[in-house]
């Protein structure tokens, strides 16, 4: 299927990805080519086939919901782009 620039812009917004005009045009072209190739899958009838998410015969694993200390808070904050210990710092998201 052909992907147009509008679709590229919509998908980029969903992915929080800033793209230049040149990138948008190139991606429209490249994604169209890749989707043409994957369209081949429609040849196979899968009406009676269950999706295979992964191959493991194991169920989800849960652990006890018990608090524990990570012991790495200061390390983590030290390597953050911006922090105000004990917090990460981000631009203001609330109205003044």
């Amino acid at each position: 299927m052909a992907i147009d620039r509008k679709t590229v812009e919509h998908v980029a917004a969903l992915a929080r990805l800033g793209l230049s005009d040149e990138e948008k045009d190139r991606l429209a072209r490249e994604l169209s080519g890749i989707l043409d190739h994957v369209a081949d899958l429609s040849r196979w009838n899968t009406d009676q086939v269950e999706p295979l998410y992964h191959i493991l015969p194991i169920k989800n694993v849960t652990r006890d919901d018990a608090p524990a200390r990570s012991g790495v808070r200061d390390d983590v904050l030290q390597h953050a782009p911006k922090s105000r210990p004990p917090f990460f710092a981000v631009p203001n998201v609330l109205e003044e």
Binding site: H10, A12, A15, L27, V38, L41, W44
Partner: peptide, 30 residues
């Protein structure tokens, strides 16, 4: 990386999920 994020986001996006992502998971079983 951008190309794959775009392709993946597209395949999971509303309106295309069944035709692309779900179809791929079914053929994966084959």
């Amino acid at each position: 990386v951008k190309r794959r994020i775009m392709l993946g986001t597209f395949a999971l996006s509303s309106g295309y999920y069944d035709a692309y992502y779900l179809k791929a998971l079914k053929v994966r079983r084959l």
